[in-house]
Design a protein around this nucleic acid. Structure first.
Length: 651
DNA sequence: GCAAGGTC
């Protein structure tokens, strides 16, 4: 009989095994990997996070034939998601007499452990079970918790189950409702995290659309090496001011100040994604980070921590870069008398911030991998580099009217030599009483600008601030919004259908469009953990709310959806005067149909073979949007006429 | 074909 230790992931399993056992062997069973100590007859296996997945029973699978009122009340089933792990776990369970759950010590971790336990127990009823809870995989901590194992905290796991159920219920019911109502081929999804995120993007776009620019007037004076500006609300004021400007200005005040700009904080996932998203979509950045981690180039990329642990030998890591492409940057760090790392506000113990774990050369990696690797290395070195020192200058100059002007000049580049180029603003050294010749004066009419669209970089940070999603899911949520065709470009612009989805949901299910739903859920999960509420109670209450949401939906609320789904696909005008849009029949055939169907049943057939895209050009003769079908550009109406001619001749 | 959360 043996001892089985179950960790959340391979990384954790490996580290646990190394600390606990001296005679380690790595074993493989198909794709699954685990560690074995012969002397202790112990196995350590790393899961892949959740190995079971919540779903509805098969009878609810058909969207069209499942009334949503029934889906709200549906039961749940658990499906095996990681069959390889499942099979290995089964084998190891059969010969185990003791199982120790060593998954991460948090809600999801407790549930992931419980899932493994359910599988173990299914094949070995009499196994002895315990649980170890650690917040860092360090020698001391691990030895301590393993000498004093505790029990599974079922309430903690139940809180996670409530989240799973509520997310699936709301997500599935609303997604089906939206998708079926739109009569569009695309899935229109909704969820506790994606919908509030989408609403932010949509509402920002509305702000931009409704933005009324206000005029203002900028008066500028130009001296030999610099210029000064002042803004006025009214044109009169500005014109009066510019008249007053004399031939010479006098320096009334001049101040210099030294400003030390601190280093950037160590990378956690959000910081990393936000920086990487400036040149790559977050999802891709995360995928590459994952691959660099697997290859041993960087540390674990999923972390909330922004403080390097004491145990990390930062200086050795810097030294390892002394003979690399970053030798100059490493030298800047090493030349300091004392090397002190910067630190962020969030400190957790599970993983360190993201740092390079080995030195790579450009040749070893592909282009995108190198971009991410370089970002991580430069950021790491910057967190250990000297501060940047600026000289900030400020002057007041009187030339009939008074101008304030400031500038900044970098004195010691410090970490900016390594990580980010600085923007300097010129202002020369001046002295009080100095006369300056006015070379030119200028009045410009300007307009206030609307707020900027959210970019991949800014939305990741905003999501974190609003507690939407987690470090491991935010990039996936963004990818989902893109793949659902809700948002486009970067910065993100919502599509027509996104406006409709948000508008419609706000009408009868506003709850799911706001971050409050997550906040409430968090609170309920706390209550479950504390034993104040049961998982069942919380889920039932949520079902009831979703039920009343369904009851309050009116057909007219959903009409907008159909219009929105087709708005971007208006391809021409119908005989009846309404819009002709791209539609799909039940059997999946595409055609041009009237948006006013069933009142108007006019339609135009389309070629069925080849990828179809809508171009922005129009047919000069018929006004129809030109389509690209299988690489060929056609006007749907011209195409129809040709087709009819052929058909008529034949018959 | 639905979500979000882990993980590769």
């Amino acid at each position: 009989m043996s001892w089985l230790i179950v960790a959340e992931k391979d990384l954790a399993a490996k580290r646990l095994a190394e600390i606990l056992f001296k005679d380690l062997k790595v074993l493989r069973d198909g794709k699954a990997k685990f560690y074995y100590s012969q002397s202790k007859k112990a196995y350590v296996i790393g899961l892949k996070g959740h190995i079971l997945e919540l779903d509805f029973p098969d009878e609810f699978r058909d969207w069209r034939n499942t009334p949503l009122e029934k889906l709200v009340k549906a039961d749940f089933v658990k499906k095996v998601k990681e069959i390889e792990i499942y099979n290995t776990l089964k084998k190891l369970a059969l010969e185990a007499e003791r199982v120790t759950i060593a998954t991460d010590y948090d809600r999801e971790g407790e549930l992931i452990g419980l899932e493994a336990l359910e599988i173990v127990k299914k094949f070995n009823k009499n196994v002895k079970i315990d649980r170890v809870k650690f917040s860092a995989i360090t020698r001391d901590e691990i030895l301590k918790v393993f000498s004093n194992p505790t029990e599974i905290n079922y309430k903690l796991a139940e809180a996670a189950v409530a989240r799973q159920k509520i997310d699936l219920l709301w997500g599935a019911v609303l997604t089906r409702l939206l998708s079926l109502s739109a009569e569009s081929k695309e899935v229109l999804s909704a969820g506790r995290v994606q919908t509030p995120t989408l609403r932010l993007i949509v509402e920002r776009e509305n702000e931009i659309k409704n933005f009324k620019p206000e005029k203002y007037y900028e008066v500028a004076v130009f001296f030999e090496n610099f210029s000064a500006k002042q803004n006025f609300k009214s044109k009169d004021e500005a014109e009066n001011a510019i008249i007053k400007i004399e031939e010479f200005g006098t320096v009334k005040k001049f101040e210099k100040r030294i400003f030390e700009e601190d280093r950037p904080i160590p990378f956690n996932t959000t910081e990393f994604l936000s920086e990487a998203a400036k040149f790559m979509l977050p999802d891709k950045a995360m995928e590459i980070a994952e691959s660099l981690y697997i290859q041993g180039y960087i540390s674990y990329p999923r972390t909330d921590n922004t403080v390097y642990p004491e145990s990390l030998d930062l200086i050795s890591i810097v030294r390892s870069f002394a003979k690399s492409e970053f030798s100059r940057e490493a030298e800047i760090v090493l030349s300091q008398e004392k090397i002190v790392p910067s630190r962020g506000k969030k400190e957790t113990k599970d993983h360190p911030p993201i740092y390079p774990t080995s030195v790579a050369s450009r040749r070893e990696l592909d282009k995108d991998e190198w971009l991410i690797y370089e970002l991580v290395v430069r950021r790491f070195l910057a967190t250990l580099a000297p501060k940047a020192v600026w000289e900030v200058r400020r002057a007041e100059i009187d030339c009939g009217i008074s101008f304030s002007v400031s500038g900044k000049k970098i004195v010691e580049r410090g970490w900016r030599e390594i990580y980010k180029k600085e923007d300097q603003e010129d202002l020369p050294e001046l002295y009080v009483g100095q006369k300056l010749k006015v070379l030119k004066k200028e009045l410009k009419e300007k307009e206030t600008k609307p707020p900027p669209r959210y970019s991949a970089s800014s939305i990741v940070k905003l999501m974190e601030k609003l507690n939407l999603g987690t470090k491991s899911t935010r990039h996936e949520i963004i990818k989902k919004l893109i793949s659902r065709k809700y948002i486009k470009g970067n910065p993100f612009r919502p599509t027509e259908i996104a406006f409709s989805v948000v508008e419609v949901l706000k009408k009868f299910a506003e709850k799911i469009t706001l971050p409050d739903m997550t906040a409430e859920l968090e609170k309920e999960m706390d209550d479950i953990e504390k034993g104040l509420k049961s998982e069942k109670e919380v889920v039932e209450r949520s079902r009831t709310m979703l039920e009343s949401v369904l009851k309050s939906v009116e057909v007219k609320d959903l009409k907008e959806l159909k219009i929105g789904a087709f708005k971007s696909k208006v391809l021409g005008k119908c005989m009846c005067g309404k819009d002709l849009v791209l539609k799909y029949s039940k059997s999946g055939k595409r055609f041009l149909g009237c948006i006013n169907y069933p009142e108007c049943s006019y339609s135009i057939p389309l070629p069925q073979i080849g990828k179809l895209t809508v171009t922005s050009n129009e047919c000069k003769e018929h006004g129809f949007k030109i389509l690209k079908v299988g690489g060929k550009k056609i006007c749907p109406y011209c195409n129809y006429l040709k087709w009819r001619e052929k058909y008529v001749r034949k018959s």
